[in-house]
Every structure is written in structure tokens, then in C-alpha cells.
């Protein structure tokens, strides 16, 4: 059965609020009575803060993101999220039967200005020349730009990025990271970036959170000014600290 066809889960402890902050308290999630995927998790993201969420596969990153985005129900614990939120997934998840601009304003109130708003935000992500293209003709990087535009057009207070660059080639990834950095410094929404890439976290985030077995193992501030560069020598110490808590020993 499709996920859609189930009745919407009771959101008794997922609350929407207006101050733009994200708060998670004592969130526990387990599947079919097994060991907990998320174990009494506490997390706060301040308005406008950029948080990177790291962790090995199976550490609960995706589960946390699915809970925050409302795709999974909250069964134990409390979650407070801003009303205006958007998700960018690893795959662009564009509707192949709608042109790029229609994908961007999908579900927005259809007005005459729909196309204009799509064009404005596509210009921001550098994709205005493909405004009328079919999604299947886009390259991987272009598709992710369109997905970013689709998130930004909603002017979210809280933006979730679920390994958005993992499937891109290295060069495209670098350019997309720069784009996200630029967009964030302009829009200043709270961001939760799920990633495997320690360097990506160091380049973009105010704070890196390492998840391990459903709990936060490390919560590391990244007190560097922007714009940042991959070659920054101050990364070295932070990098080895993060790698250490991910279980990789950087000798």
C-alpha cells in the first residue's frame, strides 16, 4: 500500500509553533518493539541556526529527520517544529510529468504570479534557464537545484536537507555546498543538514551533532567565520574530533 493511503498518523506530540525554533525532548522511536532507533533524544535548533547531523548508517539520522518532517509519527517524547518547513531529499523527487517551474510551485496557491515566483527562486539557485524543462532532462546537479528552489519558494523557517549532495559528483557537490552557504546567509532559516561528510559539516554548519545508537554522542560548535574554505587549517582539530566520535581514528 502507498504511504498516502494510510490515514494520517495522530500527531499528538508533534506541535507546530511560530518562533522558528526546533525542540526535541525525550524522543524515543522503536520499530515493532525492537531496540530503540532513537533513544530519549534531546535536541534544540535555534532560529536561523545551521546544524549538521552526522552519524553512521543506522544511527537514527533518517528516522529523526522523518519524524521532524512529519512523515513518521511521534510515539514517545515531544517535538516542536516551526510551521513553515521544507525538506530536500537525497533524490530530487521532482514530478517527471511537470515542468521545472510547475514542480517548484507545486501545491502553492495557483496564481498568475506562480511562474514569476518560480522564476525568481530558480534564478537564485542558478537554474532560470531550465524553467520550462522536463525534470528527466536535468542533470543530477540541476535536479537538486530545482529541489532546493522548491523548498525555498515556501520561505521556510526550518529547512531539512537529507544528504542532498550524496549522489552528486565531487565537483558538483562543491558548487552545491557553496550555493547552500550563500542561500543560508541570505535567508537565515534554521537548517538541519544530514550528511556523511565531515568536511561538508565543517564547511557549512554552526554546530555538528553526532548521533550514535539513537543518542547524541557529540555536540560540537564550529566557531569559524564565513565564508569558509576547505583548506582552512583550523578544520584539522575539529575534523579529528568529529571523526573520533564517528568511530574513525585519524592518526
Amino acid at each position: 500500500m502507498n504511504a498516502l493511503l494510510r490515514p494520517a498518523p495522530e500527531e499528538f506530540s508533534l506541535s507546530r509553533q511560530d518562533n522558528g525554533a526546533v525542540r526535541v525532548r525525550g524522543l524515543t522511536r522503536r520499530f515493532n518493539g525492537g531496540p530503540p532507533i532513537l533513544d530519549r533524544l534531546d535536541l534544540a535548533i535555534f532560529p536561523g541556526e545551521f546544524v549538521a547531523l552526522l552519524g553512521r548508517s543506522g544511527s537514527g539520522k533518517s528516522t529523526l529527520l522523518r519524524t521532524l518532517s512529519g512523515l513518521d509519527p511521534v510515539s514517545e517524547g515531544q517535538v516542536f517544529c516551526p510551521k513553515g518547513q521544507a525538506v530536500v531529499f537525497q533524490e530530487s523527487r521532482l514530478l517527471p510529468w511537470k515542468r521545472v517551474w510547475q514542480n517548484v510551485v507545486l501545491g502553492q496557491d495557483k496564481g498568475k504570479d506562480g511562474r514569476d515566483r518560480a522564476e525568481a527562486v530558480l534564478k537564485e539557485v542558478g537554474l532560470s534557464h531550465r524553467i520550462d524543462a522536463w525534470p528527466l532532462t536535468l542533470s543530477g546537479g540541476e535536479a537538486q537545484r530545482a529541489a532546493l528552489a522548491r523548498a525555498l519558494v515556501r520561505e521556510p523557517e526550518f529547512l531539512m536537507l537529507d544528504e542532498p549532495f550524496a549522489a552528486l559528483d565531487a565537483l558538483t557537490r562543491l558548487r552545491m555546498q557553496q550555493l547552500v552557504a550563500a542561500l543560508w546567509s541570505k535567508h537565515r532559516c534554521a537548517v538541519l543538514l544530514v550528511t556523511h561528510d565531515v568536511d561538508e559539516a565543517l564547511l557549512l554548519a554552526d554546530r555538528a551533532v553526532v548521533l550514535d545508537a539513537g543518542r547524541i554522542r557529540t555536540d560540537l560548535k564550529i566557531p569559524l567565520d564565513r565564508p569558509r574554505h576547505h583548506a582552512d587549517p583550523r578544520f584539522v582539530h575539529l575534523r579529528s574530533a568529529l571523526l573520533e566520535s564517528l568511530g574513525v581514528h585519524d592518526d
Partner: peptide
């Protein structure tokens, strides 16, 4: 199902999901 999830996170109504997805 990934497209349906996407539609859900965008806050599309059931009618919109049927019509657009």
C-alpha cells in the same frame, strides 16, 4: 512512494496529491 512522501512534506492536500501525483 518517495514522490508521495515528498508531496506530504510539501503539505499537499489529498485532492492535490491525487490530481498532481
Amino acid at each position: 512512494p518517495k514522490l508521495l512522501e515528498m508531496a506530504q512534506t510539501l503539505g499537499l492536500s489529498r485532492r492535490q496529491i491525487i490530481q498532481d501525483v
